[in-house]
Amino acid sequence: MSEFRPHAQGAARPALAIRDLTVDFQRRSGALRTVDKVSLDVWPKEIVGVIGESGSGKTMTALSAMRLLPHGARIGGAIALGGRDLVDIGESEMRALRGDRIALIPQDAMQSLNPTMRVGRQVGEPYEFHRKQSYGAIWSKVVELLRAVKIADPETRARDYPHQFSGGMQQRAMIAMGLALDPELIIADEPTTALDVTVQARILKLLRDIRDERGSAILFITHELGIVAELCDWVYVMKDGKVVEDGPVKRIFEAPKADYTRMLLEATPSIHRRKGAKR
């Protein structure tokens, strides 16, 4: 059961440790379990992928770690961020962690940005909220962050409104916001699904650079095997609320153990080959 996990070597404890996580929703017909005893680790500087189809519970798992589950969700099990429990702490304590030590990059940046606020102001919000710094100090950090996510001419673009940004730039702005306070864990929930492939390739490279340069651990939620293969070190495969297998990316692709993983690999079309769908 113990496959070699390079990022676990020499690290005291995982950046994120989830144990026997359950998420239930109360329905008229009884409880609906969307996450069923999921355990996963993200080690420091590791990029961990969670892959699954719709309804697999991958997003609910990610949102649990942010404590951002929809109203009415009941959560069980344990979640620890750098050894600190996240399940039983109060909402005000959780708010102090969000954006500071753990950050979320959502799927649809346009939906997450406030259309009436300039981008720079929004990217600077973590400083405003968590550090209560002066406007001038925040502004220079915002420019620095936008430069770090490779937005050209950041001094000018920081004054733009979100609709003046392209889809890729909006997602970069969200990433900049996530990076603001150098969190130890970044959770990215399908951050490139709405983007063109060439733009996606640049965003994935940016995330890799962030890990390499800043040392953040990244939990990456996706439904695309190709992204996992290209970006992640370790992968958890989810189906119907459960983890069906986990392991190093290369092994999962070359020697999948679970039937479901094999089926997913089989079903995914590849640009490198052509299968039997054509006659």
Partner: peptide
């Protein structure tokens, strides 16, 4: 450029 941007590792090519 398009083909290079598709996330798909070399080891999938052999499958």
């Amino acid at each position: 450029e398009l083909l290079a941007a598709v996330p798909s590792p070399a080891f999938m090519a052999r499958a």
